[in-house]
């Protein structure tokens, strides 16, 4: 049922007329452009307005998880640790054997 508060249309449209207007609208606005990727912009706004509470790390704002970044960083850290070990190991030498001290008799015989 029509709402009594709504004013009557300026002219009556038969079903065919309605269909024709529908086609006009679809023809004029039916196909929109390729939608842009909104994820970066949305996350930037949320990060700004939440003062860094959400999407604080830059990595979570990327569309795909940066797997390569994680891998390269891990490999570089391992290589660095190996290099440090390689450098310091020759300096360490071999441990000197320590003889246990002889017991000392402090009481007079």
């Amino acid at each position: 049922m029509a709402d009594p508060e709504e004013p009557a249309p300026p002219s009556r449209l038969d079903p065919q007329g309605e269909e024709r207007v529908k086609e006009l609208v679809r023809g004029a606005l039916g196909s929109a452009s390729v939608p842009p990727d909104l994820t970066q912009g949305v996350q930037r706004r949320i990060r700004t307005r939440s003062r860094g509470k959400f999407y604080a790390d830059g990595w979570s704002t990327s569309k795909h998880p940066p797997v390569n970044t994680y891998l390269v960083t891990s490999v570089m850290m391992l290589a660095l640790l190996c290099a440090i070990y390689g450098l310091l190991h020759p300096l360490s030498g071999s441990p000197v054997e320590v003889k246990p001290p002889q017991p000392v008799n402090v009481l007079p015989e």
Binding site: P9, L13, E18, V21
Partner: peptide, 10 residues
């Protein structure tokens, strides 16, 4: 909706 279509047509 009917009114909108009629307005657009006019």
């Amino acid at each position: 909706l009917h009114r909108a279509r009629a307005m657009l047509k006019s």
